[in-house]
Amino acid sequence: MSYDPTRHLLLTPEDADAPARVVRLRELGLGDVPVPEFDDFARELARITGAPYAMVNFIDEHRQYFAGLYTPAADQAVQLGPSPAAAQPGREMARDHGYCPHVVVRRKALVLEDVCDYPRFAGNPVVDEIGIRSYMGAPLIDHTGMALGTVCVVDQEPRPWGRQGLETIKSMAAKLVEQIHRREHGS
């Protein structure tokens, strides 16, 4: 085994569950189209946290898809990275951008009050390309035990999310998992 001094700086974590996650998302009919209820959920998440941007994010092997999205000007799509022509603008982002892939792989909430305080995260492309300075996200772990994606909020200013923010994002993730479960069972 050789020593790699840059290993701790890996920006995008390896995700062994991605193929199984894709199968589960297809079963649920999620991850490829906007879901109006998830847009409503993102709007409520932004309101509760006071964040200007909120997302319901599903992650596959290559990309992240925001099935729920709230931006300060709801009629103005936020550009979160290059999107293929078929994708709705602002709804798709490369898997190596942002912090949600870390949340899904770790299966734990992540609060970054100022991403620049964390060398591992400060080098993420969203910092320079979009100006993201703070992030808070929690995994969406369904009843099968699969981490499907995340709910998250971001800001272009540092934010003191604190313990209350952590508890809020975790409880909102649990609330959305229940909503997904109800969708799956048609209730």
Score class of each variant (00 low, 15 high):
G68Y: 12
Y135P: 00
D60I: 10
C116Q: 15
M146S: 07
D117N: 14
T12Q: 07
D75E: 15
D39V: 10
A73G: 03
T144I: 04
Q76K: 12
F66M: 10
A46V: 11
V35W: 06
D15K: 07
R21W: 08
D4Y: 14
D117W: 10
R21A: 07
T6G: 00
T150F: 05
G123R: 15
I59Q: 06
I169Q: 00
G50N: 04
Y53K: 00
P34H: 01
R7M: 13
Y53N: 05
I169Y: 04
R183V: 04
R91P: 02
L80Y: 09
P34S: 13
G90H: 13
R120A: 06
S2V: 12
K108C: 02
L80K: 02
V22C: 03
E157T: 05
R24V: 06
D128W: 03
D128T: 14
R133Y: 12
E129P: 00
C152I: 06
H97D: 10
P158F: 12
H143P: 01
R43E: 12
D40H: 14
A16F: 13
P82E: 15
E113D: 12
V105G: 01
P13F: 13
A16N: 11
Q76N: 05
P19H: 07
A42E: 08
R47S: 07
G145F: 12
D128M: 09
P119Y: 13
L110K: 05
G123W: 08
A18F: 12
V103W: 10
E184V: 03
R183G: 00
P34I: 14
L45N: 01
E157P: 02
V33D: 13
C100Y: 10
D75H: 15
A173D: 04
K175E: 09
E27G: 05
S171L: 15
S83M: 11
P19F: 11
K108W: 02
Y3D: 12
Q179L: 15
R120V: 13
D32K: 13
I132P: 00
N57H: 08
L80C: 10
A54V: 12
H8F: 14
R133D: 02
G81R: 08
L28G: 02
M1Y: 08
N124D: 11
L25Q: 03
R182C: 09
M1H: 09
E61I: 06
V177N: 05
R21N: 04
R47K: 08
E14I: 14
A73E: 15
G81M: 12
A87C: 09
A109K: 04
T168V: 15
H62I: 10
S2G: 12
M146L: 01
A20D: 09
V78C: 07
Y65G: 00
V115K: 02
F38M: 08
I59G: 04
P160A: 14
E44S: 11
E113Y: 08
R91S: 06
D40A: 15
P158C: 02
H143V: 11
L148S: 04
V105I: 09
M172T: 02
R159P: 00
Y118T: 04
R7C: 06
P119T: 06
R43N: 01
G98P: 05
K175H: 14
G131M: 11
V35H: 10
E92N: 03
Q164I: 03
G186F: 13
Y70H: 15
G29V: 07
N124C: 05
G131P: 03
K175V: 09
S83A: 15
I141F: 04
V22H: 05
W161D: 01
Q156D: 03
Y53A: 04
W161P: 00
